[in-house]
C-alpha cells in the first residue's frame, strides 16, 4: 500500500524533473561557447568554377566569364595618385600603408591583406560605405552612408590594384537584354537561402546578418556576386555573366520596385507581421466591437 504522502512526493519529483531537466540541459549546452572570427573572411569555400566558358590566366585566376553581358573594366590609372592619398587618409590606420594588412606597430594577420584582391572587391567595400569600418573590431562591417564618393572609391581601388594588378575587375552589367524570370529562378536557387526570397535580408548565425537588397545599386550587386564579401560565397564559374546579369536585373527591378498588389506589404516580415495584424487588428478590433455591442456593466 502506498501512502498519499509517498504519492505526492513521487508526483512532485516527476514534475520538478520535467521543470528542471530542460534548464540543466540548456545550461550545459550553453557552456559550449563559440568563437568569432572578424569579418569571417575565409575565401576558400567560394563557388566551384564548372563553366567551360570561364577563362583563366596562367596562375589559375579567373579573368573572364566568356560572354559580353557584363563588361569588366579596371579603374582608370589616372586615379592612382588620388587613390594613394585617400588610402593613406582613410584606410592605412588598419590595413597599413602598403595595404598588406599590417598597420604601423601592428602584427601581420590582424587585418585583411588587400593586395591582389582585385578592384571589384575594394570598390564594393568602399562604395557601399562598409569601409572605412565604423568599428574595426565588430563582427560585421555594416552598410552605411559611404564616407568616400563613387569616384574616390574607384580611385582607392585603382591604387590598390596598381600595387599588384589582379581580378576580378569592376563589373558593369548590361541590363537591357537580361531576363527577369530567369533572374527570379536563379535568385530563389542561389540567393534566397540567406537574403530571403523577398530580398529583405535577415539574421545569420553568430551575430552576422545578410543585408537587405532593397537599395543596392546594380554594380554593387554584381560585385558582391563575383567577389563574395564577408560571409557571402563567391559565385564564380557556376554563374555565367548572362546569369549574373539576370539576377542583377531581378534584384534592381522586382526586388527593389516590386509589382506588388494586395495592399500594404506589412514590412516584408512575412507571417510574423501577418499574425500580428490578424490578431491585433482583426481579432482585437472585433473583440472591441463585441465589447461595444455587448453589456459591460459588470
Amino acid at each position: 500500500m502506498t501512502s498519499p504522502l509517498f504519492k505526492r512526493c513521487a508526483a512532485l519529483s516527476i514534475v520538478s524533473l520535467f521543470a528542471l531537466g530542460p534548464v540543466l540541459l540548456f545550461a550545459g549546452g550553453a557552456q559550449a561557447s563559440y568563437k568569432l572570427t572578424p569579418y569571417q573572411s575565409s575565401r576558400k569555400n567560394a563557388g566551384t568554377p564548372n563553366s567551360t566558358m570561364v577563362k583563366k590566366n596562367s596562375d589559375g585566376v579567373i579573368i573572364a566569364y566568356g560572354d559580353s553581358s557584363i563588361t569588366y573594366r579596371a579603374p582608370s590609372s589616372a586615379l592612382v595618385t588620388l587613390g594613394a592619398a585617400l588610402f593613406q587618409q582613410n584606410c592605412a590606420s588598419c590595413h597599413g600603408t602598403q595595404a598588406n594588412g599590417v598597420p604601423a606597430n601592428g602584427t601581420s594577420g590582424a587585418y585583411p591583406d588587400l593586395v591582389g584582391l582585385g578592384p571589384a572587391t575594394i570598390d564594393f567595400w568602399v562604395d557601399s560605405g562598409r569601409m572605412p569600418a565604423a568599428n574595426p573590431r565588430s563582427i560585421e562591417a555594416n552598410r552605411r552612408v559611404p564616407r568616400l564618393t563613387h569616384d574616390q572609391a574607384l580611385a582607392v581601388s585603382a591604387w590598390v590594384n596598381s600595387l599588384s594588378p589582379s581580378f576580378p575587375l569592376i563589373p558593369y552589367p548590361h541590363l537591357k537584354n537580361a531576363n527577369v524570370a530567369d533572374g527570379a529562378a536563379l535568385f530563389a536557387l542561389n540567393c534566397a537561402s540567406c537574403h530571403t526570397i523577398e530580398g529583405d535580408g535577415d539574421a545569420l548565425a553568430l551575430g552576422t546578418f545578410s543585408p537587405s537588397l532593397r537599395k543596392i545599386p546594380s554594380i554593387e550587386v554584381a560585385e558582391a556576386i563575383r567577389t563574395g564579401p564577408a560571409n557571402m560565397p563567391r559565385f564564380t564559374g557556376n554563374l555565367s555573366d548572362a546569369q549574373v546579369n539576370d539576377i542583377v536585373k531581378y534584384v534592381t527591378t522586382e526586388i527593389q520596385h516590386p509589382n506588388n498588389p494586395g495592399g500594404f506589404g506589412l514590412g516584408g516580415l512575412g507571417p510574423v507581421a501577418e499574425g500580428f495584424v490578424g490578431l491585433a487588428f482583426g481579432v482585437g478590433v472585433l473583440a472591441l466591437v463585441g465589447f461595444w455591442v455587448g453589456e459591460r456593466d459588470d
Binding site: 530563389a188 534566397a192 540567406c194 512575412g270 507571417p271 499574425g275
Partner: peptide, 11 residues
C-alpha cells in the same frame, strides 16, 4: 532545391 531564409508558418 530552393529554400528561402526567414520562413515562418502562420501564427
Amino acid at each position: 532545391a530552393r529554400i528561402s531564409y526567414a520562413v515562418q508558418p502562420d501564427w
